[in-house]
């Protein structure tokens, strides 16, 4: 297996701040950005992080779990398809929280960037669910859980995935620091 870039090289190719989407332009909190390695054993930590932040911006327990699932599926796709299961490659995760306030219901935007092989974003589609077979569900799950899912090529190297979701109306959601078993919004039928 070839050696990955050393720390100096890595600093040169770390993603620059991305142009924010319409959702992120509304952000009222500073984002958190972490670098992961492409080892599945760290998926649990990424899930916990995004779930905690989603709680803080107004999502109920069930929606937080689904957002963590969407992130997990996205990271798994990078590891499995982008890096061909190599466990030593970089993945950058940035989470933009939008706390609820007088003008918004809050929400979250997740940006995942990698150095994997680039693909045509138009070819990333979920499979037909009527064809029951193992695998291929990740993209469908991401699109089902999140309001917006956008794949794009990074400048020069790798791919970028943006996912965003608006929180339920404040009168249906726990406030910051308050946990609940779910909101009216979170109990919507998905099947």
């Amino acid at each position: 297996m070839s050696e990955g870039p050393n720390r100096t090289e890595r600093m040169l190719i770390e993603p620059k701040p991305v142009t924010m989407s319409k959702h992120t332009q509304m952000t009222n909190s500073k984002p958190i950005k972490i670098e992961l390695v492409s080892d599945p054993m760290y998926l649990c930590g990424a899930r916990e992080l995004v779930s905690c932040i989603a709680h803080r911006v107004g999502f109920g327990d069930m929606e937080c779990s689904k957002i963590a699932l969407a992130l997990d599926e996205a990271l798994c796709n990078v590891i499995r398809h982008g890096y061909n299961k190599a466990t030593d490659k970089p993945i950058w995760l940035t989470i933009y929280p939008q706390k609820p306030d007088d003008s918004t219901f809050g929400g979250i935007e997740i940006v995942i960037e990698d150095e994997a092989k680039q693909i045509n974003p138009d070819t990333v589609i979920g499979r037909d669910l009527s064809d029951i077979k193992p695998g291929g569900l990740g993209v469908h799950i991401m699109r089902e859980v999140m309001d917006e899912v956008v794949f794009e090529k990074r400048e020069g190297l790798g791919m970028r995935l943006r996912m965003s979701k608006s929180a339920p109306r404040p009168d249906h959601a726990p406030r910051i620091g308050q946990r609940s078993s779910g909101s009216k919004h979170s109990q919507r039928q998905v099947s």
Binding site: D61, M62, L69, L129, I132, H140, I141, V145, V190, S191
Partner: peptide, 16 residues
């Protein structure tokens, strides 16, 4: 659990 069941519903595999 409800959270595990939710993924079966999202994938429409709960009837399978």
């Amino acid at each position: 659990t409800a959270k595990v069941r939710a993924i079966f519903e999202i994938a429409r595999l709960d009837a399978f």
